[in-house]
């Protein structure tokens, strides 16, 4: 599956510069894609545009030719990734309810997703009783249960301790075997280390200046990557 971003043009109403101006890019999946770039470059905006939360002024975002439909995308914002008034179970169930999946199937899919993210024991808890890492895993369970082809995560490891970080990355990588995952981060070291396909986003309007495989050998690019942070 391929996620095509074509001629994407967007600016915020209060801003006089364009964040994206005829932006074109392709993400191929199933795979783990990491979008790396300095603050304010438009990483979160890109995720929100793909998630359908923001509407582009011009251009299209399509999945293998067809426009993105309801349930194709699962979005995990940086904070407040779960609704605080719903239990863990109800949070994971929400996209299925919205999509009108029937009760029996809903139950099966929610339980299975909770089990595979190892948060089944928290099903009846409320988000405030979970740690940051647990909340992210519940959000991943929600993505899993909804069968969405694309999962978008905004700074998923921002407030996590090293142990939870490592665990989350391992879940993300296993999820990336069947889905297209876009992770946005400004943590250069973590992105390079964890691998996946790294896209460097920089400038205004934003453009992708480099795409390369992460992993051990990517460290040699560190100096160059840091250079992009100074430009913008």
């Amino acid at each position: 599956m391929k996620l095509y971003i074509e001629d994407l043009t967007f600016k915020y109403r209060w801003d006089d510069t364009y964040i994206f101006d005829s932006f074109n890019h392709v993400f191929e999946g199933p795979w783990l894609h990491i979008i790396l770039g300095p603050n304010g470059v438009g990483k979160t905006t890109l995720l929100k545009l793909v998630a359908g939360v923001l509407n582009p002024l011009r251009g299209s975002i399509s999945l293998e030719g067809g426009l993105l439909g309801r349930g194709d995308v699962s979005y995990v914002p940086q904070d407040n990734e779960l609704l605080p008034w719903l239990s863990v179970y109800a949070n994971v169930e929400l996209p299925l309810r919205i999509a009108g999946v029937n009760g029996n199937e809903r139950r099966l899919r929610v339980l299975e997703a909770l089990k595979s993210m190892e948060v089944l024991g928290y099903a009846n808890r409320y988000p405030k009783h979970l740690s940051g890492g647990e909340r992210k895993r519940v959000a991943l369970a929600r993505a899993l249960a909804s069968n969405s082809k694309i999962v978008l995560l905004d700074e998923p490891t921002a407030n996590l301790d090293p142990g939870s970080r490592e665990l989350l990355w391992s879940y993300l990588k296993s999820l990336a075997r069947s889905r297209l995952i876009l992770v946005v981060t400004h943590n250069v070291g973590e992105a390079l280390l964890e691998g996946g396909l790294i896209h460097i986003l920089t400038g205004r309007p934003a453009r992708v200046v480099e795409v390369f495989e992460g992993g051990e050998e990517a460290w040699s690019r560190l100096r160059r990557v840091m250079g992009y942070y100074k430009i913008s």
Partner: peptide, 27 residues
């Protein structure tokens, strides 16, 4: 109502009614 929660429901393809039921009323 917090924007993030509305965005979440919108990203799931939720309608205006879903927003009212799952975000506005509980909030």
């Amino acid at each position: 109502t917090p924007r993030e929660y509305e965005d979440l429901v919108k990203s799931m393809g939720g309608s205006k009614l879903h927003l009212i039921i799952y975000v506005v009323i509980p909030y």
